[in-house]
Every structure is written in structure tokens, then in C-alpha cells.
Amino acid sequence: MNEGLTMAVGPWGVSFASDITSDETGIGTWTEEQFSKALKQGWYKGIDGGRKLLPPMPWQNFREMKDGDVRAMYLNLKSTRPVRNIVPSPVSPRLQASTF
């Protein structure tokens, strides 16, 4: 992890902390179903068949979360002040050595 806890490096490559505010760069355009799939099933942006969320996001810890609790989190995050934050794409392990 970097000092700001916004970047993690490991055997998966390099991943960056995502924006979860209500801005379109965060979860602003996500449906509740997408949010639930991301949180409980680990799908990036809640899109089936896409890539899995990368560490350090502990999505596995949320697998058994009740739907009502997921809904409460979703509604709370959707009520936040939007913060525009374009997050870099992850860096694969094979590119990692030449990038950093």
C-alpha cells in the first residue's frame, strides 16, 4: 500500500482504490443490483462476466451480507456529495516491473 492507502501492489499487479461517491466516476450510475454484485460477488462495477475486484477490496467478507444491509449501504453512498475521481486502470503483474 502507498502512504495514502490508494494503491496496492501484489502478485495480482497494481490496483487503485475506487471512487464510491455518488459521482458518475464512482457509483453514481450503478443500479442497486450492480452494487450488490460488486459487494457480494466481487464483480467489477457489478457486471457479470467482467473482471473480478482486485485486492485489497475484501469483497469476500461481504458475501453473506443481508440484502437490506446492502440496500442501506447503497442508499447511503448514493446520498453522498459527488466527488469526481477518475481512477487509473489496474496494472498487470507483467507490466508492473517496467511501470514502477
Rank of each mutant, 00 (worst) to 15 (best):
M7K: 05
V9K: 13
G26C: 08
S98H: 06
L5K: 14
V14K: 00
T80G: 05
W30Y: 12
T99C: 00
R71T: 13
F16P: 04
S22R: 09
G13L: 02
P11N: 14
D19E: 06
E33T: 12
G26L: 04
G26T: 08
G4L: 13
G42I: 02
G28S: 06
Y44N: 05
V9R: 12
T25N: 03
F35N: 04
S18C: 09
S15H: 03
K78I: 04
V14G: 00
N85I: 06
P58A: 11
I27N: 03
G28E: 05
G13W: 04
T80Q: 09
S79V: 07
I27E: 00
S15Q: 03
T25F: 06
T31R: 12
G46E: 01
S79G: 12
Q34M: 01
K40H: 00
T29M: 08
D67L: 13
L75I: 08
G46V: 02
V9D: 02
S89G: 08
S89L: 13
R94M: 01
G50S: 14
P11R: 14
K37Y: 03
Q34E: 04
T29G: 12
L53A: 03
L75K: 15
Q41W: 01
N85S: 15
R81W: 07
S98E: 14
M1P: 09
T25Q: 05
I20D: 03
R81G: 04
G4F: 10
D48T: 11
M57G: 00
D67A: 15
D48E: 14
R63V: 11
L54E: 07
I27Q: 00
Y44T: 03
M73G: 04
I20Q: 08
S98C: 08
S92I: 10
L5A: 09
W30I: 05
R84A: 11
G46D: 03
Q34W: 00
E3S: 14
N76V: 08
Y74V: 07
V87G: 01
L54T: 04
V14L: 00
W59Y: 15
K40E: 02
K78T: 05
Q60E: 09
E32Q: 14
G46N: 03
I47G: 06
V83R: 14
A97R: 13
A72L: 11
K52E: 03
D69C: 05
A8Q: 12
N2A: 12
P93E: 15
I20T: 08
A72M: 12
Q34P: 00
M1C: 12
M65V: 13
F16H: 11
D69W: 06
M73Y: 04
G26V: 05
Q60M: 06
W30F: 12
E32F: 15
P82K: 13
S98V: 09
S92G: 11
G68D: 13
R51E: 09
N85T: 10
R51Y: 06
S98K: 13
T29L: 13
S18M: 09
S36K: 13
P56C: 08
L53M: 15
T21Q: 07
M65H: 07
S22G: 08
L77R: 15
Y44P: 00
P11S: 15
V87A: 04
R94G: 01
V14C: 01
M73S: 07
S89F: 09
E64D: 10
T31N: 06
T25S: 14
G10D: 06
T99S: 00
L95Y: 05
G50M: 11
